[in-house]
Design a protein around this nucleic acid. Structure first.
Length: 355
DNA sequence: AAGCTAGACAACCGCGTTCCG
DNA sequence: TCGGAACGCGGTTGTCTAGCT
């Protein structure tokens, strides 16, 4: 017997909010605060569930929200952070003042993902499609280091279909937008047939993709993601370990992200050639094993450095350093995360780097 | 002018986590 | 300690609108 949630009650209004509803909630929250969302609709006289009120407040009514278009700098940061930590929208949004996770997620799904795809970059892995296809072309073999199983998205499926084309010739290797659309069932069949079936490996353990992480590894995964945010937001000119050899159909893919971007995606071919003062090279966001070193030894070295870095941060804090001028929000998170790790998995951390 | 399509974004859904009695 | 309620998050769906045919 499933107990209905508070949002399943009858007579609750759904759908878009009216101005009157917004005004009612604004007035109520300004007077009483939002400590208990479950009490907000009742107090404000709204026929909404608390969950819906919280969503409306967080995404639209909060006074600190920025409703302007995304700037090129914000766009750049989103792409960098996504390359580093994946679709952790709430964490990404925390680095963008005034933006909500929903804002960032929608912007990614409607604009940025498409831009990357059109340039021949898999928006999930930030690798060139050509490399992913090549990796999966090794039927029966292990995927190359860092290959993410979770990277099989619809963008990639189109690219893979081209690879599977019996005639074996790419229709136009200079135009990545000529991918043939395929039916979902076709894609499923293709992927089932060619995707290597392997047991989870250390590669996967170290992967950024939360979808293929087991729960008991999530803390360590989070640690690496926080470290990634630190790199993206604080290290000047930071770029993930980039693919040095671009695919042949991917010539000097540079374009200027536009904040207005009212133009449709069909203008991408011209946009790739335009440069603005704030233009950045999208090659920078090709993620080639950014946190997935090639050899096991490198895995350990990488993680040891990562943990060590975090431990230093933690140590500095525990020694009572008040020099917070140079320590960021991310560092604070890192330190806290490390404390939690040490509390929960001291033996794991010790074993990882003594062998 | 009507119908269709794609883009943009608001809102919902489901699940995991946290809180609290 | 336990179970239900509330919260938070990411994925998905629904709705509106502009542009095209």
């Amino acid at each position: 017997m499933v107990r209905p949630s508070s949002c399943d009650k009858p007579n609750l209004k759904r759908g878009l909010w009216s101005e009157e509803e917004d005004a009612r909630m604004l007035e109520y929250v300004s007077k009483h605060g939002k400590a208990k969302w479950i009490s907000v609709p009742k107090g404000a006289g709204l026929r909404r569930c608390g969950k819906s009120c919280r969503l409306r407040w967080n995404n639209h009514l909060r006074p600190d929200l920025n409703h302007e278009s995304f700037t090129p700098k914000e766009e750049e940061l989103i792409v960098k952070l996504h390359a580093a930590i994946g679709s952790r929208w709430s964490m990404i949004a925390q680095q963008l003042p005034g933006r909500t996770d929903n804002d960032v997620k929608n912007y990614w799904n409607t604009k940025l993902r498409k831009k990357l795809s059109e340039m021949g970059i898999d928006p999930v892995t930030h690798k060139p499609f050509s490399q992913i296809i090549a990796d999966y072309g090794n039927v029966g073999g292990l995927p190359k280091n860092g290959m993410r199983i979770g990277s099989l998205n619809k963008d990639l499926k189109n690219a893979i279909l081209m690879k599977m084309e019996p005639k074996g010739s790419l229709p136009n290797t200079t135009n990545t937008r000529h991918f043939m659309p395929i039916l979902p069932t076709q894609a499923t069949t293709i992927m089932t047939n060619i995707a290597p079936k392997t047991e989870p490996t250390l590669d996967i353990f170290l992967s950024n993709d939360k979808n293929i992480l087991s729960n008991d590894k999530s803390s360590l995964d989070l640690l690496s993601q926080l470290q990634s945010i630190k790199l993206v937001t604080e290290v000047p000119n930071y770029k993930p370990n980039c693919e040095s050899s671009l695919p042949s159909f991917y010539p000097e893919a540079t374009f200027s992200p536009s904040s207005s971007s009212s133009s449709s995606s069909s203008s991408s071919s011209s946009s790739t050639q335009e440069m603005s003062p704030l233009a950045f090279n999208w090659n920078d966001f090709l993620l080639e094993d950014a946190f997935l070193p090639n050899e096991a030894q490198e895995h350990e070295t990488s993680m040891a450095e990562l943990i060590s870095s975090s431990q230093n941060l933690s140590q500095n804090q525990s020694e009572g350093s008040n020099d917070m001028d140079n320590s960021s929000f991310v560092e604070a998170l890192l330190a806290r995360e490390n404390e939690m790790l040490l509390d929960e998995f001291p033996e794991f951390l010790a074993e990882s780097f003594t062998s």
